[in-house]
Design a protein around this nucleic acid. Structure first.
Lengths: 218, 218
DNA sequence: CTTGTTGGTGTACGGCTGTTCACTCAAATC
DNA sequence: GATTTGAGTGAACAGCCGTACACCAACAAG
């Protein structure tokens, strides 16, 4: 279970100081990620994390100021997953129905490939107040803004006010985060259950997009 | 800050045993509710709650088997708030646009009147695994089912499959829980900010409803 | 080759945690 | 009026928590 970094470091000779430090830093992040499947970040203890990372509690401070500091590092890592996904989804600006199909497929693939990151984001998003939640809120707001800009590029939406575009983007983000939660909370994820959730996602997006076509602003 | 139940009980003479027990039970629930503004339920300790309730830690077990048990009692209390709201909203089966306006108004009023309950529900909903989250998930699923049935009574939706109705109900519930989160997370809630959020809620619902009118199932 | 830097160690502390146990004493029951 | 019941008490426990401190040993820089 617990990775013995000391042994690991001893056998792998001739590594620069920076390499070693980065390696244990990663070990700390990994050790913190693992239990988040069934517990909140707030429920982690510094001692537990350091033990799993294979270092002594006091050595923690060589890498992070506090657990909150580590938490923010986790947010950044998870957001990198999300941004990678968005970049891929942005590649194919097809028609609406194609875009929906492609987007949901991209979402599904990335969520399954980076379950831990997405679970972390969606779970921690609402869990009370704290630096971690603040960081997530900021990133997600930024993300919704970018989506609003993307939406504005569609012809039907070219006349919409930025406020309305933002409203629509928020609805989409909220709905899709709900979908992510469902995917990530399935106990034994099989292809059938996944397809069912994906179908639901497509329908919800289709419902929203259909609303757009018959929208008359104010 | 901390209510001294002992003193309180001493001055108020001649109370039956049941009354006294219920009174401290309530004190425990209240003491548990208070810190939930800025912390997760999982972050509460038995000792802290009993201290705030004015009893000794060991007396806790006279009322609840565990903190999780208390948590479930909190869920039940919060769901009573939600159900009261729904019952009121169900009273006025007006046309779509009126229904949206009335529903959002009802939502806004009840959330502001029972902030603690709604904050608890929306916050705890996603926070990891546990009996509390399971209880919330069950109640919310039940709630979405009822909404799906209500939706089916509208003429435009009479031909929809129950599966599609459920999909739509889930979208509405998710979107409105997002709205509740926004309301409940505003630091200093003034009328203007509230109206802005309410306007957003109305638009999102309108967008969804508009989608319905131009929906062609499969 | 010497010296300074630094990631990791081990001990120790005070404080908080859930739970046990034997107890009191007032209300409820007989 | 005597007896039972049960909510609340208070001391004690083993265990975990974050963090301060002095120390070591290996790498980096001079």
């Amino acid at each position: 279970m617990a990775v013995d970094t000391r042994t690991l470091n001893r056998v792998t000779t001739s590594q620069t100081r920076q390499e070693r430090k980065q390696r244990t830093r990663q070990a700390l992040l990994d050790a913190a990620s693992r239990p988040l499947t069934d517990r909140t970040f707030a429920g982690l203890s510094l001692r537990e994390v350091t033990k799993d990372a294979g270092i002594v509690p006091t050595a923690f401070y060589r890498h992070f100021d506090s657990m909150d500091d580590l938490g923010i590092a986790l947010v950044e890592r998870a957001m990198r997953s999300l941004r990678t996904m968005i970049r891929e989804a942005r590649q194919n600006p097809a028609t609406y129905d194609d875009a929906i199909r492609a987007s949901v497929h991209t979402l599904h693939t990335h969520v399954r490939a980076n379950e831990a990151d997405f679970r972390f984001l969606t779970r921690e998003r609402y869990s009370g107040t704290g630096p971690v939640q603040a960081a997530i809120a900021t990133e997600l707001r930024l993300f919704a803004s970018e989506l609003a800009i993307d939406l504005g590029r569609f012809e039907v939406l070219s006349t919409w006010s930025s406020e309305d575009l933002r409203m629509m983007a928020d609805l989409i983000v909220t709905a899709m985060l709900g979908i992510v939660m469902e995917m990530v909370d399935v106990r034994s994820p099989d292809a059938d259950a996944d397809e069912e959730i994906a179908a639901k996602a497509r329908k919800q997006l289709r419902l929203i997009v259909l609303g757009v076509t018959s929208w008359r602003s104010r």
